[in-house]
Each structure stands twice: as C-alpha cells, then as structure tokens.
C-alpha cells in the first residue's frame, strides 16, 4: 500500500496541532498547589540525605533508582532483541546463499555501508 504525500503531511500537521494544544493548555490549567513540591524537596535536602553533590545523579540512582533499574532492563531487552533477530537474519542469508550457490550481500549492510 503506497502512502500519499497528502496523508503524511496531514499526519504531521495533526501531530504539531496536538502538541500545541497540550502546550497551551499547560499555561491555562494552573492549579492552586505548589507544582514544584517534589523538586523543591530534592533541591533542599538532596545534598544532606544522599551525600552526592550532583542532584540529578542522586535522583536517578538514589531516590528513583527503581526506575533506572527498569530503564536498564529496557536497554537489555533491546540489545537481546537485536541479537536474536540478527541470528535469524544470518540464518536466512545463509539459506539464500546455499540456494544460489554464491555469496550474496545482505541488503541491510549494503544500505548502511553506503552512508
């Protein structure tokens, strides 16, 4: 199925419109609460409670280290997924070589090395 240029441009404009709506609505929906409650606490007490001068580091690895654990697992899943699928790609290239009798180049690598 070929995608028109018109469809792509409408999708891009819709996306930009949605982001604009969300940005504008962020200025309209002011709340009564201190919207910096958590960040003020980290700034004030981060140095004494964790002992590291880099507050970003103390948030990433100390206060919210569980999320960083999750992010590392996502990285691991991505890496293993790429590895498992590359095994399948190698096997299919191998099968294609055995059928044709000569060594073919994978389309993926030619496209990458052309850059």
């Amino acid at each position: 199925m070929k995608i028109n240029q018109i469809q792509i441009t409408t999708l891009i404009f819709l996306f930009i419109f949605v982001i604009m709506v969300i940005t504008v609505s962020g200025k309209i929906y002011q709340t009564d609460f201190d919207s910096r409650a958590a960040s003020q606490y980290y700034l004030n007490n981060g140095l004494e409670e964790t002992g590291s001068a880099n507050i970003v580091n103390s948030i990433v690895w100390d206060f919210r280290g569980y999320d960083t654990l999750g992010e590392e697992s996502v990285l691991f899943i991505a890496a293993t997924g790429v590895y498992f699928l590359s095994l399948a790609l190698r096997k299919s290239i191998d099968r294609r070589d055995k059928k044709k009798g000569e060594k073919t180049k994978s389309k993926l690598l030619t496209k990458i090395t052309k850059i």
Binding site: R64, G70, E71, V74, I77, A78, T80, L85
Partner: peptide
C-alpha cells in the same frame, strides 16, 4: 517482570517504565 511491576507500583512514572518493559519484550 513488566506486568508484575505494573501491578504493584504506586507511582505513575514507575508504571510507565514497567509498561515499557512488558511492551518491548512483547514486541520481540
């Protein structure tokens, strides 16, 4: 791991992280 993390958490960004874990392993 992703599904269990989603169920037990009490924090919305943590929920998003475990949603990503389960989704990525399901994609593969």
């Amino acid at each position: 791991v992703g599904l269990v993390g989603m169920t037990i958490t009490g924090d919305i960004f943590n929920f998003f992280v475990f949603l990503e874990i389960s989704s990525m392993s399901a994609y593969i």
